[in-house]
Simulated scan of single mutants.
Amino acid sequence: MPAERPGNRLFFALWPDEATRAACAEAARVLRLRMQPRGAPSVAQRYHLTLLFLGDDVPEVAETAARQVASHVRARPFTLRLDHAGSFRNREVPWWLGSREPPPALSTLHERLREALLRARVPVQPMRFSPHLTIHRDAGAPLPPTLIQPIEWPVRDFVLIRSHIGRAPVVYEQVGCWPLDPDAPEAAAGGGQMRLL
Rank of each mutant, 00 (worst) to 15 (best):
R81S: 05
V69G: 00
A187T: 13
L147H: 09
S163I: 07
R21L: 01
I135A: 00
H132G: 04
E173D: 15
S87G: 07
P102W: 06
V124S: 03
A65G: 03
A27E: 08
A27Q: 11
A3E: 15
C24Q: 12
R32H: 10
A168Y: 07
F12D: 03
H110Y: 14
L147I: 03
F12V: 08
H84Q: 10
C177I: 07
A44S: 11
P94T: 06
E4I: 13
R162L: 10
R38W: 05
Q45T: 11
P2E: 14
W96L: 13
E115Q: 15
V43W: 06
A66I: 05
F11Y: 07
R112T: 04
Q125G: 02
F12K: 01
M194T: 02
P2M: 09
A105E: 15
S87A: 14
L196P: 00
H110W: 06
A25R: 08
V124R: 10
A168R: 12
A25F: 00
C177A: 15
R21I: 02
V122A: 03
Y47N: 03
P94E: 08
C177Y: 02
Q193F: 07
T146F: 01
D181Q: 14
V69F: 02
Q68M: 04
L10W: 03
R89K: 06
I151C: 01
L197C: 05
P154K: 13
A19M: 09
D56G: 04
G190D: 08
